[in-house]
Simulated assay, not measured.
Amino acid sequence: MEFENILTENNDGILQIIINRPKKLNALNRDTIQELHDAFLDAKDDEEVKVVILTGTGEKAFVAGADISEFSDFSAEEGRELAADGQAKLFDFVANFPKPVIAAVNGFALGGGLELAMAAHFRVASDNAKMGLPETSLGLIPGYGGTQRLPQLVGKGRAMEMIMTAGMIDANQALQYNLVNHVCEPEELIEFTEKIAKKIMKNSLVAMSAAIRAVNANYEDGVNGFEVEISEFGSSFGTEDFKEGTSAFLNKRKADFPGK
């Protein structure tokens, strides 16, 4: 599939999905959100894709925010539809993606950009990264999950301060806040993230899909995450990956997971 606003590159099972609107600092518009959805949908069904790295073109921006020109004249109802559609198509879709998704945050990750990074399963940042949710400075609030995911990651107090001040934090603050897992030099960002992806790929992707569902269940209203864990744990015993993993362990060899 050909895209206008994103690039994709599969390198031995590691798929890079790159937001490619450098003149707009990779800002998200409707077309880009749709293309990202389509790229993730393709990756979900592609057996050659094991891990996804999500990043932006260049060192200036991961995603500098949403494209404000698209919704500056929206009504309240149109605003609700915008948020609901975006969350369903992209942000929740990424958060619940059955394969590991790592955000490699280069430069600005603001507004919808930070919300997209937070939807990924975890984040690596270059030391020039700047992150924030500036929506209140526009008379808005975050609409793509920011009010929910930021407190989960950094705690209620810090999330409230970030949202209320509309300010940015740098990569080292983000590391201190547990918003990112690692910080590295900009030129090392993709290589560093790929090293983590390669470690992930040594393990059972079937088990990881189950773990993603179990971890996410803890954040769903009305869902008992412990019960989901028990169910997914039990189901793991019926997989070929479990048979291979235990056989490899008992025979003191490296596992070669079939992914089933």
Rank of each mutant, 00 (worst) to 15 (best):
S209D: 13
A103Y: 09
I33C: 13
F108K: 10
I17H: 05
I169K: 04
N128W: 09
M160S: 13
K198V: 07
F249C: 05
N224G: 01
I19G: 08
F257I: 04
A95G: 07
M164G: 03
E240V: 04
E161I: 10
A214W: 08
D85P: 00
I163L: 09
E244F: 00
N26F: 06
V105P: 05
F74S: 12
V183Y: 02
R158S: 10
A83Y: 12
L133D: 05
D45L: 12
I14N: 02
A217W: 09
F257K: 01
V215H: 11
S235L: 10
R149A: 08
L116Y: 10
G222I: 13
P22F: 10
G58W: 00
I18G: 01
N106L: 00
E240D: 14
A129F: 01
N11E: 15
I200F: 13
S126F: 00
N218F: 15
D170Y: 03
A95H: 15
D42T: 13
K44H: 10
Q152Y: 02
D241Q: 08
G112A: 14
K243R: 13
F93S: 10
N181V: 05
F74G: 00
G143S: 07
V94E: 02
V223C: 10
S247Y: 14
F3P: 05
G146L: 04
P258W: 01
I163E: 11
K44V: 02
G65F: 03
L28W: 01
T147D: 06
T55H: 11
V51E: 01
G13C: 09
S236A: 15
G65P: 06
K156H: 06
K50A: 11
F242I: 00
L25M: 12
S247Q: 08
G155L: 04
A104G: 06
I141T: 13
N181M: 15
A61Y: 05
Y219I: 02
R30H: 14
T32N: 07
S137D: 10
T239L: 05
R123V: 14
I14S: 02
T239R: 07
E47I: 13
T147F: 08
F97C: 06
V101I: 07
A248V: 03
N216K: 13
D85A: 12
G86C: 07
K252H: 14
L54E: 02
N106K: 11
G112H: 07
I53M: 11
G13K: 11
M164R: 12
K243Y: 08
L25D: 05
I18Y: 00
D31K: 15
S235W: 03
K243T: 07
K23A: 13
K89H: 12
L150Q: 01
K156F: 05
L116G: 09
A83P: 00
G245P: 04
G13D: 04
G139K: 02
V180I: 04
K44W: 02
D73I: 06
T136D: 00
M160R: 12
N203T: 09
K252Y: 12
F3K: 05
M201L: 09
T246W: 12
A84T: 12
F237M: 09
F62Q: 01
D73K: 12
K198M: 11
